[in-house]
Computed example of a mutant assay.
Amino acid sequence: MSTPRDLMIVALDVAPSRPLERGELSLALAGAEAYDLLRAGAIGLDGERITPRTGPVPHDRLLAEAASSLVRETPYESLPDWLWRRGRGLSSRYLSVLETEGQVTWERSRWLPFRGGRTVLSDTGARRRAAYRWAADEPVLLALAAAVGIRDELTPAEPVVTDDAVLTVLAAVHDAVMELDAVRRRRAIEDAAFANVWRGA
């Protein structure tokens, strides 16, 4: 079971509460990888620093890649830095892997004969496992989904995470998503101001 894979499948399978952005999804996928590595004992957290540990290599190819890319020299890498570095383009990579495995196909028509149409999930065991975790209100999956807008924020009645290390990961994802949104808004304002200058406004 891979949390980032499940998150990616849910992102493709569930109508989002707001338009999804690939940057935010990539940050959440990196956070999901950190959660799985933490759960597997491959990493620990010293405050916000990721401390690599000796453990079995994850069977999932992208998780194994994530584990091998850990900074293994002190002072180690901070969790926020990990999210930004590891998350760069990560949603596209997960989508590509799912497509290679036949988990995802591309809807084509006479007007869209090449790749670039709508993604369609195949009816596979991976999709059913992701759907099961989603229907079971698995709290980490729900929190990651809420951070990127796949669903609304959690309600008090829903299950919550109590593990401090996991909470640190989820908080870092939330902060990174908020930071990315702030950067995007600032750039939009700067671009609009620049355009107004050229128009003589």
Rank of each mutant, 00 (worst) to 15 (best):
D6K: 08
V10L: 10
A11E: 02
A11C: 15
L12A: 10
R22N: 12
E24H: 14
L25N: 05
L25R: 11
L25P: 05
L25D: 04
L29T: 14
E33K: 03
Y35Q: 09
Y35K: 08
L37H: 10
L37M: 13
D46A: 05
D46E: 13
D46K: 09
G47D: 12
G47F: 11
E48Q: 14
I50E: 02
P52R: 07
P52L: 09
R53D: 03
R53I: 06
P56E: 14
D60A: 09
D60S: 10
R61P: 09
L62G: 04
A64L: 02
A64K: 01
E65M: 11
A66C: 05
A66W: 08
A67H: 10
P80N: 14
W84A: 11
R86T: 13
G89C: 12
L90N: 02
L90Y: 08
Y94D: 09
G102Q: 03
Q103G: 12
V104S: 10
V104W: 06
R110F: 08
R110K: 04
P113I: 08
F114C: 10
F114R: 15
R115T: 07
G116W: 15
G117E: 06
R127W: 03
R128M: 13
R128P: 10
R128V: 13
R129F: 07
Y132W: 12
Y132F: 12
P139L: 03
V140Q: 14
L142A: 09
L144N: 07
V148M: 02
V148N: 02
G149Q: 06
E153C: 01
T155I: 02
A157D: 14
A157L: 11
T162I: 00
T162L: 02
A165M: 01
L167G: 01
T168F: 00
V169I: 12
L170C: 00
D175S: 03
A176I: 01
V177M: 01
M178Y: 01
E179Y: 08
L180R: 15
D181G: 14
D181Y: 00
V183Y: 08
R184I: 11
A188L: 06
D191E: 12
A192C: 00
A193E: 15
F194L: 12
V197T: 11
W198Q: 11
R199Y: 08
G200I: 08
A201P: 02
